[in-house]
């Protein structure tokens, strides 16, 4: 509550429910973390090399798209560089209970395709990296 501003007393359960929904938005990030294993995650590999390759734009793009498309069960995370600098900007997408899938050289167009086709429609799309376990980053 803003200091000095007095609040209208709440007069019904319905009004309280509406207020809850408004305030819940502000806690979204925390509640997502609390149940992260049940959610879709997009992890953008950053580090300074990822940053230089433009991963920050990709990261912000995912945040924006997730919000625009109102995908409530999607969490966008960033992680350290994967070490596979040649593939950066690189991301890992994990559907709940599934193995992480990696995409390399992601640009804005690919990012949209990942959200709209792979995540929302469940379609297979091009660009999935298949790495042998010896080079796959361990922090997936």
């Amino acid at each position: 509550m803003k200091e000095g501003k007095t609040m209208e007393r709440i007069q019904s359960k319905e009004a309280l429910l509406k207020l809850r929904d408004t305030f819940k938005e502000n806690l979204r990030v925390r509640e997502q973390g609390e149940q992260i294993e049940k959610l879709i995650t997009i992890k953008v590999f950053m580090g300074s090399s990822g940053y230089k390759s433009g991963a920050k734009e990709i990261l912000n793009h995912f945040y924006e798209r997730a919000k625009e498309r109102k995908i409530e069960d999607l969490v966008v995370l960033q992680a350290d560089s994967s070490g596979l600098i040649a593939f950066e900007p690189m991301i890992g997408v994990t559907l709940p209970g599934k193995k992480t899938v990696l995409f390399g050289k992601v640009d804005l167009k690919k990012a949209d395709e990942i959200i709209d086709e792979y995540i929302l429609k469940g379609k297979q799309i091009d660009g999935i990296l298949s790495l042998t376990s010896s080079v796959a980053p361990d922090r997936l």
Partner: peptide, 19 residues
């Protein structure tokens, strides 16, 4: 911050009881 408590379903149990 009471807003965060409300976001966690705060005071809904009271509301449910008395209404």
């Amino acid at each position: 911050n009471i807003e965060e408590y409300i976001a966690r379903e705060g005071y809904l149990a009271l509301a449910e009881c008395i209404t």
